[in-house]
Simulated assay, not measured.
Amino acid sequence: MSTELNHLIAWDVKAFIEHPLVSQPKELTDRIWNNIKDTLVEFIKEKEVERLEEARLEVMFSRDALAAKLYKDWLATQALTEPFPSVADICLMKEFNDVIVRPADQPVKKKDFNPAIATLPQFVEEWRAKAKLELCKVLPALPEDHPNRDNAWKDPQRLDLATTIFGCGCFNTVSYPRVLFHRCLTSFGMSDCKVTDDLTARFERLNCVPWGYRDKQRCAVPASRFTRTLVQACGLDPETTTKIDMDELDPKFMCLECAPTAGGWRRVMAWNNVVCRCLFHLNMLLMLTWCPLLGESSLEHAQKHCHGAVRWL
Score class of each variant (00 low, 15 high):
residue 213 Y to D: 08
residue 295 G to W: 08
residue 273 N to P: 02
residue 118 A to F: 01
residue 138 V to M: 00
residue 291 C to I: 01
residue 216 K to W: 00
residue 103 P to W: 02
residue 246 M to K: 10
residue 246 M to S: 13
residue 124 V to A: 08
residue 88 A to K: 09
residue 72 K to D: 05
residue 65 A to R: 13
residue 221 V to T: 15
residue 193 C to M: 11
residue 80 L to Q: 14
residue 181 F to I: 07
residue 47 K to S: 07
residue 189 G to W: 11
residue 147 P to M: 09
residue 140 P to Q: 07
residue 225 R to Y: 02
residue 267 R to D: 14
residue 105 D to Q: 10
residue 35 N to H: 01
residue 115 P to Y: 05
residue 278 C to Q: 11
residue 301 H to Y: 04
residue 266 R to Q: 12
residue 180 L to N: 04
residue 37 K to D: 04
residue 105 D to L: 10
residue 126 E to P: 00
residue 53 E to Y: 03
residue 119 T to G: 01
residue 262 A to H: 09
residue 180 L to R: 00
residue 125 E to N: 08
residue 306 C to Y: 07
residue 271 W to V: 02
residue 181 F to N: 13
residue 58 E to F: 09
residue 14 K to H: 09
residue 133 L to W: 00
residue 58 E to M: 11
residue 30 D to A: 15
residue 80 L to P: 01
residue 167 G to R: 15
residue 162 A to F: 11
residue 262 A to M: 11
residue 178 R to Q: 10
residue 28 L to W: 05
residue 297 S to L: 00
residue 28 L to F: 12
residue 35 N to A: 14
residue 70 L to R: 03
residue 217 Q to T: 00
residue 1 M to L: 14
residue 133 L to C: 03
residue 29 T to L: 09
residue 81 T to R: 13
residue 178 R to H: 05
residue 225 R to C: 03
residue 38 D to H: 08
residue 22 V to T: 07
residue 97 N to D: 10
residue 289 T to E: 10
residue 288 L to P: 01
residue 73 D to C: 04
residue 73 D to L: 12
residue 195 V to L: 12
residue 152 A to N: 03
residue 216 K to D: 08
residue 27 E to M: 15
residue 228 R to L: 02
residue 14 K to M: 06
residue 95 E to Y: 09
residue 289 T to D: 07
residue 269 M to I: 01
residue 191 S to F: 12
residue 139 L to Y: 00
residue 235 G to S: 13
residue 2 S to Q: 10
residue 283 N to C: 14
residue 31 R to W: 06
residue 6 N to V: 08
residue 20 P to G: 09
residue 197 D to A: 12
residue 136 C to E: 08
residue 7 H to Y: 04
residue 238 P to G: 07
residue 142 L to M: 02
residue 296 E to I: 06
residue 247 D to Y: 09
residue 92 L to R: 15
residue 204 E to R: 06
residue 61 F to A: 01
residue 189 G to F: 07
residue 98 D to I: 05
residue 141 A to Y: 01
residue 143 P to M: 00
residue 278 C to V: 15
residue 238 P to Y: 08
